[in-house]
């Protein structure tokens, strides 16, 4: 019963958030006897999510399945632009969680999206920081091996923004195709430093070290989530989004290094 109450309350909260009323509505104010979505939930919820959500959404999916016996969550993790293309080409997705508003905009058949987390860049260095990297200025040092994300992908675009803010020109040795590739180059010690997301540093704890830098606040990456209008499992989709936006969902995401808006 408690679970149902929470869910109904969350559903109400989300509805309000989507209507633009902010997400500070106290959950307790919702009526406890409102019809629960949980009762009718069944089948599979297909969630298309940005690759950077892999760890946290896998956990949220397990928690969600535990909270809703009989529902199965399947994930398709990939780059946001690839996912947007797949959805527009008719892939049977119920929920889309994108790593950038731009890719969410590309999807035509969706209900109005909500920003559920934000992510900022951090400098990643191999354990022990062998090249003594201290800040963005070291990225302009030609003697250091540097990998950045390619400007075509979101982390690369964010990197360009922070370098513009810092006023330096980076001298990268490689422009990686995605943030995980950049992280791999650091964890293998092939480069002295890279710019990746806080969540990536968190996920690779022990294999890389993170260094915060002030310009990171210039490029805050917003993650929107939305249910899709052609969702085969509309109820499941809504319940999953509600769960992501719930305190339980947020706790998992925060632990992974995301900030919640």
């Amino acid at each position: 019963m408690f679970r149902r109450t929470v869910l109904a309350a969350l559903a109400a909260t989300v509805a309000l958030t989507l209507a633009g009323c902010g997400d500070d509505t106290p959950a307790a104010s919702s009526p406890s006897d409102s019809p629960s979505a949980a009762a009718s939930l069944s089948g599979t919820v297909n969630v298309f999510a940005a690759a950077s959500l892999t760890e946290s959404f896998t956990q949220i999916g397990k928690d969600f399945e535990a909270a809703h016996p009989g529902v199965k969550v399947t994930f398709n993790f990939a780059g946001s632009s690839a996912l947007a293309q797949q959805i527009n080409q008719g892939a049977p997705a119920d929920v889309f969680a994108s790593a950038a508003p731009k890719n969410m905009d590309q999807v035509t058949d969706k209900n109005s999206p909500t920003t559920f987390v934000t992510n900022t860049l951090e400098i990643a260095v191999p354990p022990g920081n062998p090249a003594k990297i201290t800040g963005l200025k070291d990225f302009g040092d030609k003697s250091k091996k540097i990998a950045l994300c390619a400007p075509q992908v979101p982390c690369g675009a964010a990197s360009e923004t922070v370098f513009k803010a810092a006023g330096g020109t980076p001298q990268p040795d490689s422009l990686e195709q995605d943030v995980k590739a950049a992280l791999t180059k650091v964890s293998l010690g092939e480069v002295d430093a890279s710019l990746v997301y806080k969540t990536d540093v968190q996920a690779a704890k022990g294999k890389v070290e993170g260094i915060e830098f002030p310009e990171a606040s210039e490029a805050v990456n917003k993650y929107p989530i939305a249910t899709l209008t052609k969702a085969p499992n509309a109820d499941g989709a809504k319940a999953f989004v509600d769960y992501v936006l719930s305190d339980k969902g947020k706790a998992v995401l925060t632990a992974a290094g995301f900030a919640t808006p």
Partner: peptide
Amino acid sequence: TITFAGNFP
């Protein structure tokens, strides 16, 4: 290629 040699124009 992209894993071993990286990507630089």
